[in-house]
Design a protein around this nucleic acid. Structure first.
Lengths: 344, 344
DNA sequence: CGCCATAGGGTATACGTATACGCATAATAT
DNA sequence: ATATTATGCGTATACGTATACCCTATGGCG
């Protein structure tokens, strides 16, 4: 009696029942060592019995820490109906899991490269830090990243890891992956390898993959032909168009390294439509290992990124930043998944 | 001078600059009509100049509303490495967008059918309401849903919409979709139609789809053969196994209606391995229209759910519940996407 | 010309927690 | 024995906002 069960219990209720003061309850539950073991045990028991949970808002307001991370997802410029890049979706799972493990909530938001997102989450105390995800034109938000750094906003970014990249970055070893792909194609006897994907500094990750390919070719005594590089963004349509343009140019080639699986899938369609046999006439390698890569015919050889580690590393790095611990950029190794599209 | 620009401005700062009291600032910015137009304009201008944003925690603490929704995602029982059902992922985009539009933040969390999630978000004032997403064994969390209802937790659920469903539910017209699929198969001349998918009340959505198929068959004077229904959960492996079992049973059939695209894709593999020609020997229809459905060979006829509307409706319904407005269950129409797997 | 409704905004306070500080008691040092 | 320190906890208060309540000046009305 006495306690009305519907009202949410507060730390005062616990304190009353435990015969201590409210701050002691707070200390006990937060793990402060200046509270005796007996008192703590008693408080914890009562808290459990009352189904007490700390009020997140009050706690955050007082401590100025939200224990929440914000995931800002930048969509591809192409606004085709919510067809999100499958690659990022699988990273999402890994990130949420890692957040839960570390006791953080995850706030998620899709962004259209808009204007004011950089203030929205930090200044209103919604989150302690920000994870930035998404392909897209790097130059377009370069200035915003600089602004974030300037404001000392805590954030971490997935992308190309290089010396001039802005802020804390975690990413795959894109150059290494390009080398892997190039080497494999050369091993199966291909000599003229085309690259589909933007190779400008608007898309540093694609650029790196292309650089890796070129390095592998040069190491094998081959000289990359710039005419065999065609711009493409990460979509099937774009890949299709790029491959068609390549075919139309009349240049001959016996292999394609596509900067993403979506591009590769579009390219495969173009090649098949042109009557070419895969992989006999043209071998092809994609990037990302999306689920669909195993469903095409021929199934698609591709580069798999370690998304599980990626999510963990991103969260880890951000949390270290929040604690002002030293943290370095991280580069993740990739793995080549060999399938039919490069099976000679 | 005077203002230090790094400290985040509060409503007191605005009040000081505007020559009014802090509550007036709060009223002005929240749109209370008991503040004159001139005062409001002035306050809004100053707020903009200072880049002021309302502190989310303080606001939530005082008003007891967080303006945040929680999305709880229940994973399939199969814990295969983070291969999330693509269908839900595309709904995610629609939900986040709708939340943003309505001025709500979205908290996301993956759950393993665990025990205490029902208290975690409501009682700690992290969110105003909960969206529940995910296939899985309905009976398993039935009691928890009942608990939610009992606690008067505000939530909305995606799933089978029926009279005895617990809580507020939004879902596709699964029965209608089953009828659509069955009718189409009958139109192209098929008479013995198999169903792959759990038809028990552990999976009400699949059950509904099967019921629709049966209804279409009966309407055409055919009698559904219970032996042609095989249980399967939504995964490729499960579909593959179910189809193999069906083949092994020796029963003949000329069409399959699969409860999901993943099941259908697994089944197609089994049929192809058995030397059957698709769709000549067996026509097949899936469900969900995942991106991969357009990449199989033959491409897969399937039922498309209106995910865009789904997300909007879920958010809408939940927000109406929060305001104690009347809200009804919603049933969304589906669309049959005809592809090669049923092209005669 | 007095009465009341209304607009516009100030005063005081509550939301629930975390932390700086102080004050006992007990344990150790001198 | 007194001086010192550590332990365990209470007191007071701040975090930034929203809201109940109160007050004043005006205008309308009779």
């Amino acid at each position: 009696m006495g306690r009305q069960p519907s009202a949410k219990p507060t730390s005062f209720d616990i304190a009353y029942l435990a015969g201590v003061s409210q701050p002691t309850v707070s200390r006990a539950l937060r793990g402060s060592k200046s509270v005796s073991a007996a008192t703590r045990a008693n408080i914890e028991r009562i808290a459990r019995e009352l189904n007490y949970t700390v009020d997140k808002n009050a706690s955050s307001l007082r401590s100025q820490r939200t224990h929440t991370l914000a995931l800002l997802f930048f969509e591809d410029p192409t606004p085709d109906q919510s067809m999100i890049n499958p690659f990022f979706l699988s990273m999402l799972g890994s990130i949420t899991r890692q957040c839960a493990l570390r006791g953080y909530d995850l706030l998620i938001s899709f962004q259209q490269m808009h204007n004011d997102w950089h203030v929205a989450y930090q200044d209103s105390h919604r989150s302690d830090g920000i994870i930035l995800l998404g392909y897209g034109d790097y130059q377009l938000y370069r200035s915003k990243l600089e602004h974030l750094v300037e404001m000392d906003t805590k954030f971490v970014r997935w992308g190309s890891v290089s010396d001039d990249s802005i802020g804390l970055t975690v990413g795959s070893d894109n150059v290494g992956a390009g080398v892997q792909a190039g080497r494999h194609l050369i091993e199966i006897g291909r000599r003229t390898i085309a690259f589909l994907g933007d190779a400008s500094d608007h898309a540093p990750e694609f650029q790196d993959r292309y650089a890796g390919l070129c390095r592998a070719m040069k190491a094998a005594g081959l000289s990359p032909d710039p005419a065999l590089q065609r711009d493409a963004v990460s979509s099937e349509e774009s890949g299709h168009a790029a491959a068609r343009a390549l075919l139309a140019s009349g240049r001959s080639f016996d292999a394609i390294f596509a900067a993403s699986d979506l591009i590769a899938i579009g390219a495969m369609r173009a090649l098949t439509e042109a009557g070419l046999r895969l992989p006999h006439d043209v071998a092809i390698i994609g990037f990302d290992d999306i689920p669909a890569a195993n469903l095409t015919s021929p199934t698609l050889t591709t580069v798999m990124q370690d998304m599980k580690s990626a999510g963990e590393l991103l969260v880890d790095a951000l949390l270290r930043r929040l604690d002002d611990l030293p943290v370095e950029r991280a580069v993740l190794p990739t793995r080549l998944i060999k399938r039919q599209s490069t099976a000679v």
